[in-house]
Design a protein around this nucleic acid. Structure first.
Lengths: 229, 229
DNA sequence: GTCAAACGTTTTGTATACAAAAACTCATTG
DNA sequence: CAATGAGTTTTTGTATACAAAACGTTTGAC
């Protein structure tokens, strides 16, 4: 827990942006937001900078902060990069994973199975997050693990929806098992391909979902938001 | 050219950090730096945040900003990720590169050849940068291109030194030609492997250089700095 | 009616003021 | 002599003040 106002504001704004409280391109009014959060402009501007660094807002000099919802094709591009990053993690992990980490990964797969059986979607989601994070760490490259985690987090709102697609949880689970086996046997090729596909299919599912909502030419996120209920 | 003081300060500090004006772990004194740059603490703190976002300083709450020189093994890890990112760029570029971009890439290879013949190390460096940037763009994935460019920039100070190794320029050049041919013929496998090796060898060269300077157990960057003259 | 220039308003970027947390000093105690 | 703690200093985080840039609006020229 952090005592800095700037961090609280950043988190709150991040949440608001991701959940679609602002339209794409909308300007974030320092003064109004400041009085809304009961803080001065200083921590707000700090939050703006942090959000700009992670790509959620665009900071134009002497103009202000504008929320930047990724366009549909940008999300697809991010999924493509995510697939490649995870593929690399898998390839390296097959060679470098430690017995302890392998045990932990196996535990998350089992936990995923339990959650799937119980129909516990939230539980599955949580264990799935854990599974991927462990694969990043298993790569033995901390820098890579950090980068992967960063992009993973950025794609979170777009990944979340595709898990709700019919049958996706079962399919995802069998992919996890395939990857686990590859890691256990040190089969780097299969681990690489398995993870690339596992993530790429998420991008495809997202693509499919979007395609079925393409009545308007709104940007992807607005569509996502309108889907929430 | 930007009129914001914060940006000038960030650039100046960035330069100072990578050229080794600060020791690893050294605290950046807001007040002293402020009067040194003739600005108030506000733009300085903005600069700190930006530098923290790109990993050059660590920001500890209620403690201050501390410069963070990557340890040797972290640099090796970054080179490993860079190699994989460029490999992906190459694989995608072999399939997606446009005729215009291909022409531009060919032009940089020729310019590199000229510079190498003339013994123009700076010219070679410049055209080499251009070559890689074009490959990123040729991937057809702007997000990937941005990420690659970001890491490329971060590795710049460590890449620069290995180009001075005897014979490296000629070797680098022939690698460029191999990659160019692969892109021209749409050979994604060769383009991928070529770029991975091309970057990995940079990491190895860096590794070699460091190994020969391992008398002390100083962190890598301090060693790099002491090598400058 | 359209364009442009002058004026007033809003908003950003920077400086400064201030409160609270951390660091430091140094005397005191076990 | 080490450890502890009160009191002081330093430093960070936040609020506020202010100058200058961007924006909007009205007025005037064509």
């Amino acid at each position: 827990m952090n005592t800095r106002l700037a961090d609280h504001v950043r988190e709150a704004l991040e949440q608001m942006i991701v959940t679609g409280d602002f339209a794409d391109g909308e300007r974030l009014d320092e003064i109004r937001l400041a009085e809304r959060f009961n803080v001065s402009r200083t921590p707000l501007r700090e939050a703006f900078q942090a959000l700009a660094a992670s790509g959620l807002v665009q900071l134009l000099p002497r103009r202000g902060a504008f929320v930047r919802h990724p366009a549909f094709h940008e999300i697809i591009e991010m999924f493509e990069v995510m697939a490649e990053l995870e593929a690399v993690c898998g390839r390296l992990a097959a060679r470098r994973v430690t017995p302890q980490t392998l045990e932990q990964i196996k535990a998350t797969v089992i936990a995923c199975e339990c959650a799937a059986h119980a129909g516990d979607s939230d539980g599955y989601y949580r264990e799935n997050e854990h599974f991927h994070q462990l694969v990043y760490i298993a790569s033995g490259n901390d820098f890579l693990a950090n980068e992967a985690q960063r992009l993973h987090k950025r794609l979170q709102p777009f990944r979340r929806m595709q898990l709700r697609v019919r049958g996706r949880m079962i399919q995802s689970l069998s992919e996890h098992r395939l990857i686990l086996t590859a890691l256990e046997t040190g089969d780097s090729t299969t681990a690489e391909a398995g993870l690339r596909e596992h993530v790429a299919v998420q991008g495809s599912k997202f693509n499919d979902l979007m395609a079925s909502y393409k009545r308007s030419n709104l940007r992807a996120h607005s569509q996502l938001v309108s889907m929430r209920e």
